[in-house]
């Protein structure tokens, strides 16, 4: 079940990115990011309302791990602003590749710190995922250059 959820997260990322890109063409990238969070906040409040989860008071962060867990939402915005900035300056192929590479390497490092052990299957698996992505991205790139000619 958790596996299916992780795959579906990829589906919703791409769908929402495409919808946001359509909106960005009309009103601008930053403005579309604003609506992304605005609509997201409204819907998550509705979902929360039906979830029967308790409203807990936010506790004051004490240690490092307390502080960083509040920063996820802000990092998301920083990532979007950076990607708006770099998208016109770099080929889609290279950008996707670089983001995927550092994403997976960071994931492996974070899991190492979280679970305290170095997982060889995760490294090998991550490397294979990367090869598969690079191969398909390369097919896209080859196709684009041929159309350009």
């Amino acid at each position: 079940m958790h596996i299916l959820f992780a795959i579906l997260a990829g589906t919703t990322i791409v769908t929402s990115r495409n919808v946001n890109a359509m909106l960005a063409k009309k009103i601008g990238a930053i403005e579309s990011t604003f609506f992304n969070y605005f609509v997201g906040l409204l819907l998550s409040i509705v979902v929360f309302f039906f979830s029967k989860e308790a409203i807990l008071p936010l506790f004051i962060p004490e240690g490092f791990s307390d502080v960083i867990m509040y920063l996820g939402g802000i990092l998301g915005v920083v990532a979007i602003i950076i990607s708006n900035f770099i998208t016109p300056k770099i080929s889609a192929f290279l950008m996707t590749l670089l983001i995927f590479i550092s994403q997976l390497i960071t994931g492996i490092v974070l899991d190492f710190f979280l679970y305290g052990e170095f997982s060889l299957p995760k490294v090998i698996g991550g490397f294979l995922v990367l090869i598969g992505l690079i191969y398909n991205l390369y097919l896209d790139k080859k196709d684009n250059t041929e159309t350009a000619k």
């Binding site: 960083i68 996820g72 990092l75 998301g76 920083v78 990532a79 950076i82 990607s83 770099i86 770099i90 290279l94 950008m95 670089l98 983001i99 995927f100 590479i101 550092s102 994403q103 997976l104 390497i105 960071t106 994931g107 974070l110």
Partner: peptide, 10 residues
């Protein structure tokens, strides 16, 4: 671009 990937994982 590399930095952005780090941000996504974090």
């Amino acid at each position: 671009a590399l930095f952005n990937g780090i941000l996504y994982s974090l």
